[in-house]
Design a protein around this nucleic acid. Structure first.
Lengths: 232, 232
DNA sequence: ATCGGAAATATGTCTGCACATATTATCTCT
DNA sequence: AGAGATAATATGTGCAGACATATTTCCGAT
């Protein structure tokens, strides 16, 4: 038998996937170690490592030092979805993005926002805006900005530039969290989106920090019909 | 000035992030090439490559051969969210998972499902099931299975094992797509979940293929209050 | 000027080697 | 038998060098 030859980490990855797929390596089973696979595949261990590491990142394999590599028992497939600017999102749909600032104030936020950001009773900049796609309401943006860490924002004309655009360009964040849910449209949301009260809205809640300092919390309520899609 | 020394790809990554943050390398600007950075950081080019590649995968950097590396202009942050089995999801919340098969039939699917799977007018296995968490309704599962590619499924008792559990163990998929949206509860969904008709439901639509052969299309309608959360 | 091919360049990746590190297995002493 | 120290092992990662590949730039022929 002639030993097949895999010289790229992609081809190694494909071969590993193939074996998992034909159940030569069934879920839960241990696969040979990197050194053995490298010998069998006729390539360097680093190449095998690259392939297996990528598969582990994708959730297909479980790897632990000394314990070896096994095929994930519960293949927790990971979907990666990109979080674009709303203007880019609308443009990608081939529509024209519009934006209107509906309200702006500096007030003490309600308890849930305070808890989320951890800013206590300090007043924050509160913004309410409507994004449109080809003049149709697209998403209502309800945002709280920790004005203490980005005081420059007080002087920005947010009727021409969206808060998010200014923030991504001027106040980068180190980390954040994002949550997706469904909510019934409030009276205000219904009015801005031109839909009945109680309609099902796709809602994205995002909070971002720069180190320990909270930057902003935003709730995006998308008009009915919105789908967030990705490949797995 | 003493040249700082970075010997792990993580530390290189941290330093690059730091420079992006302090705007030494502002959005859109090109950063030095790998060889120069390796010299400056006192490490191998492979180490710099590892760090920059990871940042590119995260959407922080844009890299192109010959053109070099630049800080992403529109930081399309990528969120990765894992798609667990529902039983694992419920268990992770510290609740007990329950499952009840509500209906099972082999019929020709409606047009949207036919279009999604591309199986034409061939009859498919249709399943309707309710998952519970600590006896409370959790999610309604509406699934179509391409029985032609997994005929063994005809003989499975799906009242004890969920269709998804059987499928992940016996009919692995090569790729798929997943979409998230919000929908108003239908009469049937409202009844099964014990909620009013028209309540806002978080809906996940997932379709999977094995190569060119469609395997299954499933719609998961979660009970109100469900949040899908991840870090960015 | 313009178009096409050649040169230059930055990233992509492979190799072979070494050592680090986490975790498991084993052995020893009580 | 049990607890704690010790060895073994698989993965994680670093390094130096080499070649591959995609793109851009440059230059010469028309």
């Amino acid at each position: 038998m002639i030993a097949p030859h895999f010289n790229t980490w992609q081809s190694v990855q494909d071969e590993v996937l193939r074996r998992i797929h034909i159940r030569a390596w069934p879920p839960g089973s241990a696969i040979p170690n990197e050194a053995d696979l490298a010998t069998e595949f006729g390539c360097a261990r680093a190449t095998v490592n690259r392939a297996l590491r990528a598969l582990a990142e994708a959730g297909i394999l479980d790897r632990r030092r000394r314990a070896g590599t096994r095929v994930a028992l519960h293949p927790v497939r990971k979907a990666t979805l990109s979080i674009p600017l709303i203007s880019a999102e609308v443009a990608a749909r081939g529509q024209r993005h519009g934006y209107r600032l509906l309200a702006r104030s500096e007030v003490c936020p309600p308890a849930p926002v305070r808890a989320q950001l951890g800013t206590g009773t300090r007043p924050l900049l509160h913004l309410l805006a409507l994004h449109t796609a080809d003049a149709a309401p697209y998403v209502v943006e309800d945002r709280w900005v920790n004005i203490a860490v980005v005081p420059e924002m007080r002087d920005i004309d947010l009727s021409v530039q969206t808060a998010n655009e200014w923030l991504v360009a001027n106040a980068p964040f180190t980390h954040g969290d994002i949550a997706f849910s469904a909510h019934a449209a409030s009276a205000a949301e219904a009015q801005h989106l031109g839909i009945p009260i109680g309609a099902a809205l796709f809602v994205v809640d995002r909070t971002t920090w720069n180190g320990a300092a909270p930057i902003t919390a935003v709730r995006l309520a998308y008009a009915p019909g919105y789908r967030m899609q990705t490949a797995i």
